[in-house]
Each structure stands twice: as C-alpha cells, then as structure tokens.
Nucleic acid binder design. Structure first.
Lengths: 181, 181
DNA sequence: GGATAAATATATCATAGTGATATATATAAT
DNA sequence: ATTATATATATCACTATGATATATTTATCC
C-alpha cells in the first residue's frame, strides 16, 4: 500500500471550505481549527501547494502586496475537488499515536517512582489546562457558528480524551503510592 | 529546539532492559510491547543502530547464523547508558497525535451524515476489538510478570483511551441521528 | 521615544520517520 | 506440494518536521 501524502487533501479540503486562500492563511486556519488532532507546517505546505498547482488541482493568482512578498492566492479546481472526493471515499487509517510519556514510563528502570510521579503530574496539569481551553473554544463555536456539527464533534473528542487521561493519571498515582507503602 | 531522534533512545532502553539483542529482536519486542503507543520500523532501526555503534554507545559482535544473514548482536555501553539516562531526565514533549478520522469528519461538507456514521461505526468496532485485546494482554501480563507496573500502566492507558473513544462514538451517533429527525 | 515582539507572507534545508521492497533460507501450516 | 511465517539484514523513495532566512508593517512594552 503506497503511502499517500495527506497534506494535499487537507489543503484541498480547506480551499473547498473557505474559498481562495494563501498558504499562510491555510496554515493559520489549521493552527486554529485542526490543531487538536492534526498539524501541518510551512516546510510541507509550500512544496505541496506547488505540486497541486503543477498537477492542475489548484490554480494560483499572484497579488501584489506592497512591502511584503506577493500573496499567492490558491483556488481549488474541479479536478482538485473530485480528487478530494475520491480520497474522502477511500477507507481511512487509524490514529497515528506516539506517546512519549508512555514510552518514558516504559523505558524507566524499576524503583524510579519519583520520576514517574513527576511525569504523570505534568501530564495531568497539561490536560487540566487543555480541558479549560476546550470549554472556552466550545462556547465560542456554539455562539458563532450556530450548530457547526463537525467542530463540535472534534471538540468533544478532545474533551473525552483529556478526561480519560486525567482519570488515568489519578489511578496511576494511586498505584504508585500504594506500591511505596 | 533541535529535533531529536528518539529511535536511538528506544533502542538503548530496550538493550538495557533486555540485554544484548539483534535489530530484528528489538523490532519484535517493540511490536509486542510498545505497539499501542510507539512504533518503529527497520528502515529506521538499522541506520540508527549503525550510528549508535559509530558513536560508541553500543558495541556489536557478529555471530554466524548458518543459512541466514549473520546475527549482529548489539550491547549497550556505559556511554550509551549514560546517554539514555540524560535523555530520560530531559523534559518530554506531549503526544503526537494525528487522527485521520477527525480530519475526515472535519473536511466532509455538511449533509454527508451517512458517510460520517459509517466512519464512526468503523472506529467504534475497532475500539471494541482493541478493548478485548487489552483484556487478554492484561491477564497475560499479570500472570507472567507478577506486578510489572510499567506494563500495567501503559495498558490501562490504552484501555482508558479506547473507552473514551467508544463513549464519543455513541454520543456522536446520537447527535447525528437527532439532527436528522 | 525607542526597542521589541507579533503578524503577514514566502521559501528552503537537513534531518527524522515511513512503507515498500530485496535477499535468503528454514520451518510450520494448509 | 504449496503457501505462509519466522529469522535476519539492508536500502530506497518519499513524506513530514523544525529551524531558519528574508522582509516589512503594526502593535505592545518599558
């Protein structure tokens, strides 16, 4: 199974959703909206945009932008839209998941419980903060977009996940404390 | 912040934990034990092993292995162990998380609820299966290793996560059904 | 007022990481 | 008898990441 470049579909999807945009605008949008479950960076966005143009899936018009680099405004073509649709209809792969906390806990030799506890506590704090953020974002989404189902679904996923992590942290700490009695 | 190659620490950690091993054995171990939160592949393991040897963090002895390629058995050196320790004491980054399901839900235009439901159902089934697997593995870990805290902690993380996903799937389906009434 | 940071906008580079594939043989399962 | 799996190494092309370079305007801080 050939590995496929998903960035191209992210960009096509955003162009379809938001209309003509620059690479910079799309990156900002990704950072705001997809950040909890997907990320992209310029080092990938610009080359992919170039390739999308070469293969006729987007068109580009340059706009003068006094003092700053010219804006390259991309628009999705019909070929691009149909390409996006056909990708959307393929079966998808699961979640790519690399958890450095679990890796470190696993690699740490026995009798290093203090370090474990320190790491777990950090993770706990982090997820507490995330949950607060989600609450704010959800409020914002509900007020601004009416019922933006997609956004709400992805948000609730993030919330469920962080809640699960919090529970796990508490249980893990309990286990470690018990062990040290 | 320079990006660092984590594979090297995974390999050093495994060598410290399991003693002298070949690349193949370490890959098998990763697939069995870390698979739920970390993965590595040969395309990275072999080059990194070579580099670890060049930088004196492992030693290598070749063993004849009639009919098959020579086994290259790697052993962690003191330099390697201290390098591992110093990495273990650095602050760690969060979870790398790329969720293709959420991406697709987000990119799908409105009024495509059937497709959404299909995707969510698939995710639900997948996590149901995972939970069953975890139950078996946990039994095995508890019986074989006595109280292997690390393994139990990572397992319970996986369980919590899948449970959260199941809950989310059910809620998401409810939301979608309500919307279509 | 002057310095600093952030926003706008493009792009490239080296390195990290992935999936497929090549090579070769023994053994186990169908 | 055939096929799949396990053992064992290694490379390749491509994807993805983080840092950095360039250049200007605008906003913020002391």
């Amino acid at each position: 199974m050939a590995r496929i470049n998903k960035t191209q579909y992210v960009l096509l999807g955003i162009l379809r959703m938001r209309g003509p945009s620059t690479g910079y605008e799309m990156k900002s949008f990704i950072d705001e909206s997809l950040n909890y479950f997907w990320m992209e960076n310029y080092g990938h966005i610009y080359p992919v945009l170039k390739k999308l143009e070469e293969t006729g899936r987007v068109t580009c018009r340059e706009e003068a932008n006094p003092g700053k680099p010219d804006r390259k405004v991309y628009t999705i073509t019909e070929a691009g839209a149909s390409d996006l649709e056909s990708w959307l209809s393929t079966p998808f792969e699961g979640i790519i998941f690399k958890n450095e906390l679990l890796l470190r806990l696993f690699l740490l030799p026995p009798d290093r419980d203090e370090e474990m506890i320190r790491m777990i506590r950090k993770e706990r704090d982090h997820n507490k903060k995330l949950l607060e953020e989600y609450a704010h974002v959800e409020e914002h989404v509900r007020s601004v977009h009416g019922k933006q189902l997609n956004a709400l679904l992805t948000l609730s996923y993030g919330r469920k996940f962080s809640e699960a992590v919090l529970e796990w942290c508490d249980e893990a700490m309990e286990l470690l404390k018990e062990e040290n009695k």
